[in-house]
Amino acid sequence: MSTDYQKAREALGLRLRELRLTAPDGQLTGTALARILGWPNSRISKLELGRQTATTEDLRQWADACGQPGAYEELRARLAGFESHIRSWRRQLATGHRPVQEAHNEAQASSTVLRAWESSWVVGVLQTPDYARAVLTRSAELHQSPRDVEAAVRARMKRQELLYTGGRKYHILLWEPVLRSLVCSPSVLAAQLDRLSGVIGMDSVELGVVPLATSLKVPPGTGFWIYNDQQVVTEVWHAEMWLDDADSVALYLRTWKTLRESAVYGSEAQNLISAARRSLHPR
């Protein structure tokens, strides 16, 4: 968790405490507020100390319980301010995966130069429906989120229209293990590899593969996107981060360019994809 994010969460906690202590009918103790809300005392403490992130509903209930419902919009704005950078999966997936896919569709549609590095799976804009279905199903199982997999797959497939509408260029780097990772069935992966082979040569996509045996100047790390060299989107197990400060963007751009130095393109990339494809059905 970033220092700036934690500081913002602690600042929100201080504001929540202030509302509790300045309730119009007299200050409330933490125990009294917990009783009104039907929450455990520990939750009050964690929110005020910035050890837990409130939901918008938490903030609404807090403001009402403290007799200051008018403070809700201010609290919500504070939360939106730091969650625009770090978006927890718990909150993002509360209504399923489709809204997350649509947010990425919008971000990519508004970009003209898109750079990606992926070390775990094929990037969404190049996925087949069956591959996307497998990945999204496993994600829903992991996060125990609402099952809207088919709607999410349709939203992710809609993103692929951007490959054919012109006006943007995708510079995508995949680590070779992505070509062999069975995050789906072998038959689905085979079709996915065929899809990648067909992408090579498209004027809207520059697809590079970083061979497993090549020398790397930096560790592969986690995947990320860079939009217009101005915004970075990356994810960890608990959250997705949208970064737009100049220092962070510059760091990710240097990382991408360094990884690119180890990539192969064209026929060499095609050979790696073909080798992975053959390994699924050895003779």
Rank of each mutant, 00 (worst) to 15 (best):
R278D: 11
T214V: 13
Q144Y: 11
V236D: 15
L19M: 14
P186V: 02
L216W: 13
R91T: 08
S197T: 09
Q92V: 01
L280M: 14
H238N: 14
T165S: 11
G81M: 08
M202W: 03
G201V: 07
L75A: 12
G96V: 08
D4P: 01
V149D: 09
R156K: 15
Q6K: 13
V135F: 02
D130S: 11
M157A: 10
G266T: 02
Q270R: 11
T56A: 14
A155H: 09
E176Y: 07
D4T: 14
D148P: 04
A140M: 14
P40N: 11
A132R: 01
S88P: 08
Q101C: 00
G223P: 00
S248K: 06
Q52P: 12
M157E: 05
S88F: 09
A275P: 06
A239V: 05
P211L: 02
S145T: 15
A246R: 15
L173G: 00
I86H: 00
L75V: 09
V232M: 04
Y252N: 00
K257E: 15
T255L: 08
A94N: 14
A23V: 07
R138I: 12
V123I: 14
A80M: 12
L212H: 11
V264K: 12
H171W: 13
Q61S: 08
D58V: 06
I172Y: 03
E18D: 15
T234V: 08
P219G: 07
P282S: 15
R133G: 03
A191S: 13
R254W: 02
K217H: 10
T112K: 12
L136K: 05
S111Q: 04
D58M: 12
S185V: 03
A275D: 07
I172E: 01
R180W: 11
D245V: 04
E240K: 09
H104M: 11
V249R: 01
S2A: 09
G26P: 00
A63D: 07
T55H: 12
Y5D: 07
T29G: 05
I273F: 01
G67R: 03
R60E: 06
Q108G: 08
H171A: 08
A155E: 05
